[in-house]
């Protein structure tokens, strides 16, 4: 309710061609694809069976499945988020900050010392 209240005031001021929901559908779908890649990468480091399952092409190895899952998560979530958010005015400052925080997490999870440390914790736990 708080968001709705703030956005109705913002809608008048913003002057954008469309509500800001469509903007965040694009950004959050991109993030969903990338965080999927990061989590799949950790999972493949933990579980050898999953790593084999990800090997869709013997030459490319598990990277083939990781790439495909990134694309699937990204391009499936985008239209869904677009339909859900396109008529909504979201607080740009708040939600863009959330997006940037999410990107920081996704990027950190791709740094090998970080994802290997997490995978080690899962293996030993």
């Amino acid at each position: 309710m708080d968001v709705e209240h703030r956005t109705s005031a913002k809608q008048v001021v913003s002057g954008l061609k469309f509500p800001t929901g469509g903007l965040f559908a694009a950004l959050f779908a991109a993030w969903i694809g990338l965080i999927t890649l990061a989590l799949v990468n950790v999972a493949s480091d933990v579980d050898a069976g999953f790593r084999t399952w990800l090997t869709l092409h013997s030459g490319i190895g598990p990277y083939s499945g990781k790439e495909l899952l990134l694309l699937v998560a990204w391009f499936l979530s985008w239209p869904v988020l677009h339909v859900v958010l396109r008529r909504r005015e979201l607080d740009v400052k708040l939600w863009f900050g959330v997006f940037l925080g999410g990107m920081l997490i996704a990027t950190a999870l791709m740094w090998p010392p970080v994802f290997e440390w997490i995978a080690d914790r899962f293996r030993s736990g």
Partner: peptide, 18 residues
């Protein structure tokens, strides 16, 4: 974002950042 919102972005400081 640039194609969908076009030059209306220019007037909106936070959307410009996004």
């Amino acid at each position: 974002i640039l194609w969908r919102y076009g030059e209306t972005l220019v007037q909106h400081r936070e959307a410009r950042a996004a």
